[in-house]
Amino acid sequence: MKFETILLTQIQPDYFFCFSTDGDSIALNSSINEMGLQTPLPVIACDKGFKLFAGFKRFEALKALKIDVIPCRVLDVEMSIDMHFANELKVHCLEKSINLLEKSRICNIISHPNFNSDARKSCLSIIELPDLKKIIDSYIRLLDLPENVQIFLSRTDVTIKQVEIFRALDIVDQSKFTNWALDWNIRPVELAQIIRLCLDIAKKDRSEPFSIFNAVLSKLESSDNRTQALAQVKQMLTDIKFPQLTAWQQAMKTNKKDLKAPQCVDIAWDNTAERPGINMKIRLQSNKDLSSFKQWFDDSRVNNIIHRMVES
């Protein structure tokens, strides 16, 4: 490797290797304008000059600033460009974490049939993925989604499995759901849960996921508070998906209300209904509590309701 200054016109960026989503070009431009290029661009000599395979954002900034002479690191041509890419990736990952979209783009790059196999192994180890086709393909599939959805998904810690949920939607619904989430400041993980529910209901009812979601939105009582609204949407969708469980829970709630239990008694049950029966906690702090509990529990009406709850 040697450091050289090279004319910008001699550098040909190979965008095949571009994976970064880091996009604050204004800040980068002003930084270069003020302090110059701090890190020389890595290039490799080729027939018509020099090939650039990393540092694309910096290259674009230099171009925009009309800087003609660029400090570069000219790398050894004996080593393949793929291996150089792996080395640059390692440095990149030491400096900053990579997001899901970047991981997907890297998977796409290293899955090219001509990509060097040792470099591929290196890259996978750097991005902490196993060399399993099924997993790598699932990352690459993220790139089939519309660009706005890709960017939305790369914002937080959404998993690739949650991304697959988006893929189950058609392209129009993918964008509709994403736009709604952006408007409401909903995180990708939360949106994935909502889409999953809509998909399950749609499959059962043979309807469209977004129309189900729209119908639920129209019934939303309060949309001022984001957290409350989100919880309401989820609850309404869950009620649609689990009609019998919802009916069971409703019946339990009605029974509990009818019990008119004294304050010292707390009644709860397993919300999934998996464990039958009820949990009754009695907190006796005074003789008054004891007598009110006894009076309440001896009532045959109360006993009938409890019996009903236990049997349900």
Binding site: F242, P243, Q244, L245, W248, T272, E274, R275, S312
Partner: peptide, 15 residues
């Protein structure tokens, strides 16, 4: 209607 059972497996709701 399936829930995650007490063993972690998905199963129909008990009723």
């Amino acid at each position: 209607e399936m829930i995650r059972g007490l063993d972690g497996k998905m199963r129909y709701i008990r009723p």
